[in-house]
Structures are given as C-alpha cells and as structure tokens.
Design a protein around this nucleic acid. Structure first.
Lengths: 315, 315
DNA sequence: GTGAAAGCGCTAACAA
DNA sequence: TTGTTAGCGCTTTCAC
C-alpha cells in the first residue's frame, strides 16, 4: 500500500528522477525517453505529489476561502464565483465555514496560513485581520469581502447606495411608515441603515423605526413590534429574509396590500414570490476576489460594486 | 519576505530544530526549554508549514469534496454536513465544482488525489469511479453520494421509496392524472421514476406521462406538453424545482386548485410557498460521509437514508 | 532531555 | 539530452 513515487517511475523507465520530473513539468527531453517515462507513469499509476511540489514553490496552489455562513445565498454565489476563477487558474479551493464565531474565524485563517494557501478570501470580522495582514506581509494576497480593511484588498458593496436605493423605491411607492430589521452584524448593516435614513429624509419621509436582531428566532418579535407603527418592513440583510417573510405571512398579511416588504440580496425564489430586493452582484464579487488573488497586485486594491434594485411588487 | 522556518525558531531559542518540533507536536521537552521555544515562535510569528508536515504523514489532513452543482440546495447542505465533521476532526475541506461535466469530474478527482487528501466525498458520475477506486486501493477512503459503487463507500437515498412516497401522497390527494418531469441525470432519477410508477399502479392509478429534461431551459416546454393530459406535475429532482414551479405559475395556474405540484428535496422557501416535497436528509448525509472518511473503515460501507414526505398543500 | 543526521518526494542547479 | 547533487521545511531515529 506504499504509494508510487517519482523514484519508482524513474527506475522502471531506466532514467533518473530528474528526467521524470522534466517530462512531468515540460522540460527538454528526447521524445523517445519521454515515451518510456510516460509508459512507466501509466502502468505504475503514478500520481505526482502536489504537496511536495508546493514545498519548493514555497506555497501551494490552493486558494483559501473563509466564509461566515454557508447557508446564505450570498456566500454561495460568492463561492461559485471564486471557484470558477480558481478552476481556470488550476487552483483548488479550500473552504472553511465559521458560523460567525470569532474564535473559529481566527483559527480558520491561521489554518489557511499553515496550509500555505496562495491567497485568501475572507468574509470574517476585524478579529482575523491581524493575522491576515501578517499573511499579506508574507506575500499572500488577502481579499476581505463586504468591508474595507487597511492594508488588505477588499471587495465591497456601496452599502450607502443600497440604502438610498431602498429609500427611493419606498418613496416612489408611497411607503411612508417604514420599519427596519437589521442584523447586529457588521459595518454593512450600519451603512445600509444610514443610507436608508438619509434617503427617506431626503424624500421627506418620516424617520424609520429600527430593530436590531441577532438570529432568526428573534425576528418574529422584532417584526411584531415594528408592525405596531408601520405598514412597511425593510430588511437590510439577506440572511434574515426568510425569517422576516415568514413573520409577515404568519400574521396573515399579504404583500403589497397589507404590508410592504423590501429586502437585500436576490435569491432564486424571489421571482416566484414577487419579492422586491436590492441585489448585489455576489457571483461577480467572488470572481473579482479570486482574480485579485491570482493577480497578486502589489498595492491594496479596493473594489466597490454598485447595488441594483429589482422591483417585483412586494412594496 | 522569506518565511520563518523551524530553523529560525530553533536558532532564536538556542536549541535544535528537533526540539522545536517536539515542542510543537507534544514530545518530551523540559518546561524551561519549551518556554524559550514558545517565546521564539511568538516573536518570530512562526506558522508551521502543514504541507511539509504532510509529506511525512504520506498524506494531508484535508478532506476532498467534488460536487456536480454548487447551486443546488442539496449539495449545499451536504457540504455543510461534511464541513461540520471535518472541522471537528481538524481537517480542512477542499472543494471542487464540476458543473456536471464528466471530463472535469475525472480531472477534479485526479487533482484531489495529487493533493493527497486523506479522503474523498464525490457526487460524480461513474466516469470518475476508476480513479476513485485506485485511490481507495492506496488507502484513501472514497465515499460516493447518491448511488452505490462496487468497492467504494456510498451514501444514498432509498430512491424507490421516495417514488413510493410520492405516489402514496398523490393517491391520497386523489391526483390521478400525473405527469413527471425528470432530470436526464443519473440512476437516482430512474429509481424514483420506477418507485413512482409502481406506487401509482399499486394504488390503481393510471400510468404517468414522463418527460426527460437536461436543463432549466427545456423545462417550460416539457411542462406544457405534460399539462395537455394531466392536472398534476411531479418533479423527481430538486435541481429543477424552481424551473418547474416557474413554468406552472407563468401559465397563471395556482396550486393546488388549477394544478397539483410535488417535488424532491426540501428547501428554505418551500414552507413560504406551500410546496409539498419528498425530502432527503442532505445535511445528515454529509455528516455521515465525512464520518466515514474520518473513520476509514476497512470494508466498503453502504448507508441508505430514508426519504420523508413533507405535505404543504401544493397537491 | 537534547542534538546530529538521515530522509520524506520532489525540483533545480550544475556538470557531463 | 541526461544524471548527479543539493536542498525545500519538517520529523524521527539514535546516540549522547
């Protein structure tokens, strides 16, 4: 059960390991010897050890991805985008989920470092930035998603604009009594809320109520309290869309008549349900992130994507 | 920009590399020297190279996962389950998507082999089995998902039972004119169709019409042709659920009154949409797969999960 | 308890 | 065009 090594191949082909290596990596070899080597490779079922190879390169060809929530459609599309570019660059993708546990986030980034990934895409909190920056200073490109971080590459959404878009749509629909459900999460939430408030004010609408929510199970109560004063519910994070929608329909409310509903991030069923959203180009963001990793630009790159409104009638 | 090695740490701590290695891996070291080593590790920001480590072990600690479709909720839950178990075992997860391209499937499995993964979970076609078996014979546990394969571990669903469940539910609802939309995919499809047909016959119902469909864009026409003779549409693969549902609602049909709808695989929005499904425990299946990889059983393990009907009124 | 030295599987100079 | 010889960063005997 011992694995076949380059030495075994060399022995069988009657050449040196260097020659085998050259055949494998496209060096200068006579066609006749190359043929012998290929034959040996074939019959022995040799599979070159990518790990050992990486030792020389100093790093592996793998791209590391640390996401905080594997069940969110946003991250899923992001991963698809990354995977696409990685596959084209012949880079395997190493995936780690953290379930938004800061301790796990840091640990996973560290693990990626130990795996000597060629680059890293992270959707983590600031907690993990220190280590990411150390990796960056070692020449490992690190791309932060959904926020900016000094000294690191970043891909983010223009969150203030997202809020503005929401406000503009609400104003257009004549929705004046607005309640917001926000995640207790990250800078994104704050900025979207800001944009939303500024936008509503700009359109001469009343300041919205807002409830911060950590998990799905807090959503129902939050929605209930918002509905006492409002006829429109806006959700600033795609992560809570299902829960908010459930809270509304569970009350027997239909959209847009009984209540208006507007949320972040497009998803496959939004069309069927007629839910209006402000979408971010998550797949494209993943692609860009991976492209940065592959390109290894010397200076920190900051890419900001613009959100789009997709009106489907739910408000 | 040269990386810190174990040699650097050793030099700074005034000990040999062997001692540093022992401190890192829990060998017998005096507490006083261990302290010095830890101090050096700390100040130098040393991050041990997992790649080099794996050379000695003969293989890495990574678990490889090859999925055919990153956008399907089934695979997503599967990955979550795998990731969970892998994280608990301190194993990174290497993910590869193939977009159901047989050539890419084989290539990805080969790539995983070259990465010397400790084990493999694949959702690929038979095409890739040969290589998987070779890996298995080299001591790499390989788990096939959604079908059985001689000589390999497998996790699958009792697909015939899934068909029966569907048939029983249709019979109970008095749905006698049934049309089936199937993927042109894999053995699963065939078995579910079988179970469905047998079940319908068993309940004294007419033999169903069936249309095979490769992609989303063929679905609308398929549904249209089925609706000429039938008032109920059954979909035997979760992958096509969105497309079939869209085809129905685009015709202005409402469920369950105008048309009955029943499909495979539960998904987050099924509740909100009131769609009845026959569900498979995808997350649990992922967990079991990873557990097999971690346990490395000597003989091929075949696990078959049972499907469950979740009735929500769409038929 | 610790270090010297050999070697894991592979690549890259340098000769031949 | 090919083989020889050093390593890559780490672990692991085997002495001391």
């Amino acid at each position: 059960m011992k694995r076949v090594t380059i030495g075994d191949v060399a022995a069988r082909a009657g050449v040196s390991t260097a020659t085998v290596s050259r055949v494998l990596n496209g060096g200068l070899v006579a066609e006749s010897t190359a043929a012998k080597v290929r034959e040996a490779t074939e019959t022995l079922g040799y599979s070159p050890n990518a790990l050992t190879r990486s030792i020389f390169a100093g790093r592996s060809s793998t791209i590391g991805v640390v996401v905080r929530d594997l069940s969110s459609p946003f991250y899923l599309d992001l991963i698809r985008g990354i995977d696409e570019v990685a596959a084209a660059a012949d880079s395997p993708v190493m995936l780690a989920n953290t379930d938004r546990d800061p301790a796990r986030e840091a640990a996973q980034v560290r693990a990626m470092d130990q795996q000597r990934v060629r680059g890293l895409v992270i959707t983590t909190d600031e907690t993990a930035d220190d280590h990411a920056r150390r990796m960056a200073s070692n020449g490992t490109p690190c791309v932060v998603i959904a926020r900016t971080a000094p000294g690191l590459h970043s891909i983010s959404l223009d969150d203030v604009a997202a809020g503005w878009l929401m406000a503009a749509h609400l104003a257009e629909r004549g929705r004046s009594r607005v309640g917001i459900v926000s995640g207790r999460d990250r800078p994104t939430q704050v900025k979207r809320g800001e944009g939303l408030r500024l936008g509503l004010a700009g359109h001469g609408l009343r300041a919205p109520d807002e409830v911060l929510v950590a998990n799905d199970d807090e959503v129902d109560e939050a929605v209930g309290s918002l509905l006492r004063r409002n006829d429109t519910v806006v959700c600033t994070t795609g992560r809570l869309t299902v829960a908010v929608h459930t809270a509304l329909t569970a009350r027997g409310l239909t959209m847009p008549d009984d209540v208006g509903f507007l949320t972040m991030d497009d998803f496959p069923w939004a069309g069927a349900l007629g839910i209006s959203v402000v979408a971010q180009p998550s797949y494209e963001m993943g692609r860009r992130a991976a492209e940065i990793v592959v390109a290894e630009p010397a200076d920190p790159v900051e890419v900001v994507f613009e959100p789009t409104l997709i009106a489907r009638g739910s408000c």
